[in-house]
């Protein structure tokens, strides 16, 4: 009789657990379906439902990871990082831990909190468990630098993976196309408008140079004709104004030119690059 009862209880336990798991699995599949159709808000509801009813916590890693992905897709990076962190804490093996951690890095890249992304890359690199995944770490480090607009460093990171890496070439090319803001300013100190020519703004350069020559002539002429007050007024209010303006403009032109160059590459990365992105 006892044996019979034990068999019944065992059977009962097995059925309950197995059937329960079936339903939890179904719920996970259902949530994944919604996730697949990009209805991320609703997908979060279903993952939360799964977490609530998954008494054995069989899906605690997957569900939290997916919630993190949903928030990330919705641009809610703080929430995404919170859920990726929970999934990281519930990782059952090194691969899951690494996946969560890289998702946190990727979210930080998109959030443009580059320092944090780099810090996490360094932490992963120091972790002996992931010594075989240095390429992955360097890949995300490269992306972190790209989002921080540091293309030379990005190129160096990608070069560590492969010297001919597609992104290494792109980052190096972008860095090469950029202009020097300091140089643009310095040459404008020497010749007003030179910085504008350096950055390709020829019309502005011509106008700037003209104003400076004209105002310079007025100023010098005033002093030559002993109209000292006029000389000071024109010198301060006109000449110096346009002289300072030429330096300021050179800096702004260089900054804008660099943004333009960076954006051309970023646009390519977002729309045409086939590799894995943050």
């Amino acid at each position: 009789m006892k044996i019979r009862m034990i068999i019944i209880l065992f059977f009962l336990f097995f059925v309950v657990t197995a059937k329960g798991q079936d339903y939890v699995q179904s719920q996970f599949d259902y949530a994944n379906n919604i996730f697949g159709s990009q209805h991320y808000f609703d997908a979060i509801t279903e993952y939360k439902r799964l977490l609530f009813f998954d008494l054995t916590k069989a899906f605690i890693y997957e569900a939290n990871f997916k919630i993190g992905e949903c928030y990330k897709a919705g641009g809610k990076f703080d929430d995404a990082i919170e859920y990726f962190s929970i999934s990281e804490l519930n990782a059952r093996n090194d691969d899951e831990f690494f996946e969560s951690k890289t998702q946190i890095i990727r979210t930080n890249i998109l959030r443009r909190t580059t320092d944090r992304a780099l810090q996490l890359c360094d932490e992963l690199e120091k972790d002996e468990r992931f010594s075989s995944r240095t390429d992955d770490i360097n890949y995300w480090r490269g992306w972190s630098y790209i989002f921080a607009d540091e293309w030379k460093r990005a190129a160096n990171s990608f070069a560590k993976i492969n010297f001919n890496h597609e992104l290494k070439k792109l980052a190096a090319q972008t860095d090469k196309e950029k202009v020097s803001v300091t140089f643009a300013k310095v040459i404008s100190y020497i010749l007003p408008g030179a910085g504008a020519i350096y950055t390709g703004n020829y019309l502005s350069a011509l106008l700037s140079l003209s104003w400076n020559m004209l105002a310079g002539y007025w100023t010098v002429n005033s002093f030559v004709q002993d109209r000292v007050f006029d000389g000071f007024v024109v010198g301060e209010l006109v000449w110096l104004r346009f002289y300072r303006g030429a330096i300021y403009n050179a800096e702004q032109f260089a900054i804008n030119k660099n943004i333009e160059v960076a954006n051309k590459s970023l646009k390519f990365l977002q729309n045409e690059y086939k590799g894995i992105k943050p």
């Binding site: 019944i8 059925v15 059937k19 329960g20 719920q27 439902r49 009813f53």
Partner: peptide, 28 residues
């Protein structure tokens, strides 16, 4: 045995979208 089987099968088939479970989840 019959009772356990019946309740087991009932217990093992939670409809997460039933009013009862929705209420539990909603309260959470």
């Amino acid at each position: 045995l019959i009772f356990i089987f019946m309740s087991a099968s009932l217990f093992a088939q939670p409809d997460f979208f039933s009013a009862k479970y929705r209420l539990e989840f909603g309260n959470y």
